[in-house]
């Protein structure tokens, strides 16, 4: 537990390095919802391969690192209703807001973008309310 924050910091530095490479080499903002969303709705047709290669890296590295860990439990719920509702909210919300934790959070705040800061305040507040509501009040999660 007490070394979790060290791994969090190391992981964060790696995430930020990925974002720095994507920005300085490709000239693009590393936002997961934007990269996926552009593929899904066709708005990123012209940069389709760049997006697919990025996502391939995201999927592949955990596969390569897994032998060092043996196994990792994501503790993801098996409640289908919760997964579907959460997935829909995340999909619709990030596209309407034009960003998620990586785009608005990591990339937006680090360039002192007011939009990034405000978006992050709202999704963290809503996330906190969500956990209080669904865990402590309704007891669903």
């Amino acid at each position: 537990m007490e070394q979790d924050w060290i791994w969090g910091l190391i992981g964060g530095l790696l995430i930020g390095t990925g974002g720095a490479v994507y920005l300085l080499a490709n000239g693009r903002i590393m936002g997961a919802s934007g990269i996926i969303g552009g593929l899904v709705d066709g708005s990123g047709k012209d940069t389709k391969w760049e997006r697919l290669f990025f996502l391939a890296g995201v999927v592949l590295l955990p596969i390569l690192l897994m032998p060092l860990y043996g196994s990792v439990d994501t503790h993801v719920t098996n409640n289908i209703g919760v997964l579907v509702a959460a997935g829909l909210l995340v999909g619709v919300g990030t596209r309407i807001a034009n960003g998620c934790t990586s785009g608005h959070g990591v990339c937006g705040i680090s360039r002192l973008s007011l939009r990034g800061i405000v978006a992050t305040v709202f999704y963290i507040l809503a996330g906190g309310i969500s956990v209080v509501l669904f865990r402590h009040i309704l007891g669903i999660i």
């Binding site: 997961a32 919802s33 996926i36 996502l55 995201v58 999927v59 590295l61 955990p62 596969i63 897994m66 196994s71 990792v72 994501t74 503790h75 993801v76 719920t77 919760v82 997964l83 509702a85 959460a86 997935g87 829909l88 909210l89 995340v90 619709v92 919300g93 990030t94 596209r95 309407i96 807001a97 034009n98 998620c100 934790t101 990586s102 608005h104 939009r115 405000v118 978006a119 992050t120 709202f122 999704y123 963290i124 507040l125 809503a126 996330g127 906190g128 309310i129 969500s130 956990v131 669904f134 999660i141």
Partner: peptide, 30 residues
């Protein structure tokens, strides 16, 4: 849209504990 979208995203994020990046990263083992 920034406010409404971010609020919807946050509600879903808290509900499942997943956001777009980690959900893709854990496809192989989640």
């Amino acid at each position: 849209n920034l406010i409404i979208g971010s609020t919807m995203f946050g509600l879903g994020w808290g509900l499942a504990g997943l956001c777009p990046g980690p959900s893709i990263a854990s496809l192989s083992y989640g």
